[in-house]
Design a protein around this nucleic acid. Structure first.
Lengths: 110, 110
DNA sequence: TCTTATACATAATTCTCTTATGTATTACTG
DNA sequence: CAGTAATACATAAGAGAATTATGTATAAGA
């Protein structure tokens, strides 16, 4: 598990990009997908994820679709058109950030 | 200027690594060096920097040397032996983090 | 039957950083 | 030479994002 300090500020970017790559997903599914993609190094907590999803929805970047699985609720999230644009922007921003940081820290990545 | 959200959690790493690479430095000098290295993209604020330097010193990772330039105080910081070890660890940790993130976000870095 | 996994959600707290404020010296510019 | 910008330290109030804790409930596996 990574030092969670570094993870701060990346949650929205992760959510947006994973939704862009994998299409319609529900909250719990996102946590599992990120866990899988990161080999268990990034474990999204529910207390951070759900408020983030609600916020992104309120901003119009995501839209929801609630379905019933038996007696259990499942809330799917999909990127809206503006959401797709922002997802791309956030990833670019992150790449720029990494490039700057590798210069400042004088590190080479494989 | 980068989205400051992403910068969160990286301040200690930056300070430790810059001190490791450039040796004895004082606070203001660190802000200028980082600004220069990052092409103006990372602007450390004093409100964040000084408390961080004090904290790292309290943890024994940095030691100080106060000198007088005319009538003005200048406080130099240098890594201690444990500080050098932690500096290395923090950079490794950051590299690991980037590797994980590039996988999760499916991005390639030049 | 009991525990774990699935699935949502919110509230209290913690932590880091930004913004604001304060003090003071030195250098530059009109 | 007066005013502003740069140098140089420091701390405190407030904001924002995440952790931790708590709550509800169903489904699956041991």
């Amino acid at each position: 598990m990574h030092s969670t300090e570094l993870l701060k500020g990346t949650l929205q970017t992760i959510v947006l990009k994973v939704l862009k790559d994998h299409g319609k997903m529900y909250g719990y599914e996102i946590t599992q997908r990120v866990k899988e993609l990161s080999d268990g190094r990034i474990l999204l907590t529910e207390g951070a994820l759900y408020p983030t999803l609600h916020k992104l929805e309120a901003e119009g970047l995501l839209k929801t679709e609630v379905i019933n699985i038996g007696k259990r609720i499942r809330k799917y999230y999909v990127l809206t058109a503006p959401g797709k644009v922002i997802a791309k922007d956030r990833v670019s921003e992150f790449v720029d950030f990494i490039n700057t940081m590798t210069t400042v820290l004088q590190v080479k990545l494989d």
